[in-house]
Design a protein around this nucleic acid. Structure first.
Lengths: 130, 130
DNA sequence: GGATAATTCAACCATGTGGTTGAATGTGCG
DNA sequence: CGCACATTCAACCACATGGTTGAATTATCC
């Protein structure tokens, strides 16, 4: 639940935007894996898989422990929690739950203001991006 | 909560991996906006902003309604819900909640199998990727 | 020490991304 | 009609991405 910068959110979502990397994460959810083990199921060179792992590492999603000549990887769920939390902001939209205040803000204030005078809205109300 | 293909998950997470686009989403959470309104706060050309909006549209996050010469955009939270749900699979990791069965599976089965015989684990147990 | 195993590094390539600019498209307005 | 507005299109550019291959690095085993 650590607060992440916009840049860090970029890297996390980018890391998640690739099937191979998501697959590796699910693998790591089952337990620690070496680079070779993570690479094996994917039809690509070890070097390519290694790069993917580095992307995950760069996003803070994977921690690596070097043990002799093998590198043990394990999942770090922290950034996933942050991403999850980030998405939660929009939960009320898909659940349709808007309380009275929000409905007022949205339909009365915002919509009319935007329509009538092309107003720029109050600078970035909720969760300042990141 | 619609089930998305792996490719669609790719596009949703990719759409979310850019600060400009996340900013636009938050703007759209406040209400409908035209392309020009979405573009305005960002230091880039209209054409560039238009491309960003098209990425969001391609990910299914934005629906566009053409009204005369202006294009009205509104948020479609469906894919966000799916992404949120996707991340929920990992919730137990950051909450630390592992029930007995899972702990058994993880520490006994998986870890030993991997260590002893470099086994490939049961083919992709949870949520088949997408 | 020397072979082999696990992984990375470096160079390279094709393609995608995010931005630019200038012209095109289509709509509204006097 | 003719101009101005909202938006896209097309061509272009710099740089990132995802992949390759072959050599380098480091550790283990005999």
């Amino acid at each position: 639940m650590v607060e992440l910068s916009a840049y860090q959110v970029d890297t996390v979502f980018h890391a998640l935007s690739d099937t191979t990397r998501r697959h590796m994460l699910r693998e790591l959810a089952l337990g620690e894996r070496t680079v070779g083990q993570l690479a094996e199921p994917h039809a690509m060179s070890l070097a390519a898989a290694s790069k993917h792992i580095k992307v995950l590492e760069g996003a803070g999603l994977v921690r690596r422990e070097i043990q002799g000549r093998t590198h043990l990887c394990r999942l770090d769920p922290g950034p996933l929690a942050t991403a999850h939390q980030w998405l939660s902001f929009y939960e009320r939209f898909w659940t349709g739950r808007l309380d009275a205040l929000e409905r007022l803000l949205k339909e009365d204030d915002t919509r009319k203001a935007a329509a009538e005078q092309n107003t720029r809205l109050p600078p970035s109300k909720p969760g300042n991006d990141a």
